[in-house]
Design a binder for these strands. Structure first.
Length: 725
DNA sequence: TACGGAAGTC
DNA sequence: GACTTCCGTA
């Protein structure tokens, strides 16, 4: 069936063995395709065509059938098969030739890379058979593999390009065997297998035959892979021994290697006739099939096994990484000791431009970012090398999941930002923070954002919405200094809505707690408040609060100006009671209602009576006053009496006018009494108490002016004391 | 005809 | 993992 000439691709037998299919125990579709391509008998079904590596499926159904037979999938059809082929797109093993029906193209580079990772792709410059279509037309030069790109140069794949004569007969045989695995006979046979061996012969054949395959040109057979001289291979893998297909007909020295070397699978990693000795099994087959890239292969020193190292670990990168890490650590506020291990690393100064952005960021956020930034930064730095390697990695997809984008890469910047400024500012704000917490704990409403100047709320929203860093940064920056404080304060004060406003003062936690309970400064106008005010008023408030207590009503009444008043009152005026009244005031007010007194004090000392005095029984308008008035009247009376007495005395000394005096006295008293009585409703004339009082005082009538004066004072004192009555 | 997602099989 | 099977879409 096959003419010697058709001995085409030098597919090493291992390529057809299940083991040869990485990740699969069964033959892979691409293997199968190659098989078919290599067999003349199937040329009507599938054949090389067009560009290098390009083939066309002439009879899709038949191919599918064959494939199905091979896989024992009778249901196989071209649709399914093509689906399988399409999966190769992603793997870059295969791609579709657009515009041509049923035409696909192998990416041999991929295949080679996968199967020959150990090959140093970078060096050779020598010519290799170009990917010629199935039909080699001419001399080896024609097939220069990497026409221009050195990178492509060495891929042995080139061999694949020449479908025709590249395969060793042995390989073919084996291949066929594989094809027929499940087949009922449709597929190829074992005849070949039986025929077997004779690799050398095969070579000879091939050489003689002048190249199988359609083109029949032997030209490419002569092509030697610069790097892959069997000698080299032997050297590498130990042994000059030449497995069947690998020794050149010409002799050891030549770099010309026979067909096999040219084939994409010059060396079989697997034990066996095809050169099993050369490679340790794990090498090629173990590697993933996924080709590196559809693009020309770019030498990757890092990957090249020849170089002996898979990763380049650049000290510089490491350094950067560590620095980044440092930064992150710093941001976290971690102990610098962490860096002790890296004495050589300069820890970035935490200096922040203007706005301390970091300041406000939640520790957590910062931590995250910093960490991410640090780590990522580190990763990033590593990446170059890794990326490099990845670049060559067979798997395009997996290789660069996030080629460029390191979301966190800015995090690095963040990390770089020196936190120092911010932290301090932050510290300036403890009150707000504590308060927030307290608020949170207390039932006070968390959200007063509406009222807030907006810095607070805005910041929050922004934070959530945007990158936290930005939002925070803005907040902080804007808020920096007083701004920060104001913002926080506003937030705090914001309770306005219905919440009791708590003026919290940072003085101490304990105090604050107390305040929380007591302070209900409700209804303040947030707007009116200042931070300063808060700060400085707070103490007053506290004091006041202590006195105020939970008396909501009182506060409410004050609402409009409560704060202001309080501020002023508390602050400016520790309640300046009327000069003379101080003692009284103190004693009474302190114990009495809290806030009332303050305003009262300012306005009128006298008025308190109103409130305090119970409504008079009489119900007359003056009723309230009656009680108080009498005192005054009494006093007045007293006073007048004294004077009169004195005068009368002087006069009386001479005369006795006594009765008149009494009368007058009565008159006056009446007047007073009236007033009093009006209030009390007790009748005009006399008010018993006054009389009594008077009486007591009056007794010493004959007294001197001095005495009267003293009495006067005393009475005043008494009156004051009794004022409440 | 080709593509690719989704789910399933081995 | 490498398909296989189905299917919707272009």
């Amino acid at each position: 069936m096959k003419t010697p000439g058709d001995s085409g691709f030098a597919f090493p037998e291992w390529a057809y063995k299940p083991e040869s299919s990485p990740g699969s125990r069964q033959i892979q579709l691409w293997h199968f395709i190659l098989e078919l391509l290599r067999k003349e008998e199937y040329h009507d079904v599938i054949a090389w065509q067009g560009d290098y590596g390009e083939f066309v499926i002439k009879d899709p159904d038949e191919v599918a059938r064959l494939w199905g037979a091979r896989k024992c999938k009778p249901q196989m059809n071209y649709d399914k098969l093509s689906r399988a082929l399409r999966y190769y797109y992603n793997k870059r093993i295969l791609h579709k030739t657009k515009g041509k029906r049923f035409t696909y193209k192998f990416n041999f580079n991929k295949l080679v890379l996968v199967n020959y990772p150990f090959i140093d792709m970078g060096s050779s410059g020598s010519s290799v058979p170009q990917s010629a279509p199935p039909v080699p037309t001419g001399a080896g030069t024609h097939f220069r593999f990497p026409p221009s790109t050195p990178s492509e140069v060495l891929s042995p794949n080139e061999d694949l390009r020449s479908p025709g004569g590249m395969f060793s007969s042995v390989a073919r045989r084996i291949g066929r065997g594989s094809v027929s695995d499940c087949s009922d006979g449709t597929s190829v046979n074992s005849e070949v297998e039986e025929g077997n061996t004779g690799v050398g012969e095969e070579r000879g054949e091939r050489g003689v035959s002048g190249g199988g395959g359609p083109g029949g040109g032997g030209g490419y057979r002569s092509i030697i892979h610069p790097r892959l001289s069997h000698e080299t291979l032997f050297r590498m893998y130990g042994g000059p021994g030449n497995p069947a297909g690998h020794h050149g007909s010409r002799g050891p020295t030549g770099h010309r290697i026979h067909q096999e070397p040219l084939s994409p699978f010059p060396v079989s990693p697997l034990p066996g006739p095809g050169g099993a000795n050369l490679l340790a099994p794990p090498l090629s087959p173990a590697l993933s099939m996924t080709p590196t890239s559809h693009l020309p292969y770019t030498p990757s020193p890092t990957l090249s096994p020849m170089l002996g190292s898979h990763f380049s670990f650049n000290p510089e990168d490491m350094k950067r990484y560590l620095q980044a890490h440092t930064q992150s650590v710093y941001n976290y506020g971690l102990s610098p000791r962490a860096f002790l291990q890296y004495p050589n690393i300069v820890i970035p100064q935490p200096h922040r431009p203007a706005a301390d952005k970091a300041a406000e960021r939640g520790a957590a956020e910062r931590a995250e970012r910093a960490a991410a930034g640090g780590e990522r930064g580190g990763d990033r730095h590593h990446h170059p090398s890794l990326a490099h390697s990845a670049h060559h990695h067979p798997r395009p997809h997996s290789a660069h999941p996030h080629p460029h984008s390191h979301p966190m890469h800015h995090s690095l910047h963040l990390g770089e930002e020196p936190p120092h400024m911010s932290p301090f500012k932050f510290k300036l704000q403890p009150p707000p923070l504590g308060r927030k917490q307290r608020e949170g704990q207390s039932q006070s409403k968390p959200r007063q954002s509406s009222l807030s100047s907006g810095s607070g709320s805005g910041s929050m929203s922004s934070t959530s919405g945007l990158g936290s860093s930005l939002s925070f940064g803005s907040d902080l920056s804007s808020a920096s200094g007083s701004g920060v404080i104001s913002a926080s304060s506003s937030t705090q004060s914001l309770n306005s809505a219905g919440l009791p406003k708590i003026k919290v003062e940072p003085i101490s936690d304990i105090e604050s707690e107390e305040e929380v309970e007591v302070t209900d400064i409700s209804d303040e106008d947030p707007d009116e408040r200042d931070e300063e005010f808060q700060l400085f008023s707070s103490r007053h408030l506290r004091a006041a609060e202590h006195h105020h207590l939970a008396n909501g009503s009182a506060t409410n009444q004050h609402q409009p100006h409560a704060d202001e008043d309080l501020d002023e009152d508390v602050f400016k005026a520790p309640a300046p009671p009327p000069p003379g009244l101080m003692p009284f005031f103190t004693s009474q007010h302190i114990h009495s209602n809290a806030l009332r007194p303050l305003p009262t004090l300012k306005s009128e000392p006298v008025e308190p009576g109103e409130s305090t005095t119970p409504p008079s029984q009489t119900g007359s308008a003056g009723a309230t006053q009656t009680k108080c008035i009498p005192l005054k009247l009494r006093f007045k009376r007293r006073w007048s009496e004294d004077q009169r007495m004195e005068a009368s005395q002087e006069e009386s000394d001479d005369k006795k006018v006594r009765p008149e005096e009494d009368r007058e006295r009565g008159r006056q008293s009446n007047g007073c009494t009236e007033m009093e009585e009006d209030g009390t409703g007790s009748g005009e004339g006399d008010s018993p108490p006054p009389l009594t009082y008077e009486g007591s005082l009056a007794t010493p009538l004959p007294s001197h002016r001095r005495v009267s004066a003293e009495l006067h004072r005393a009475t005043a004192q008494l009156s004051l004391e009794n004022k409440d009555c």
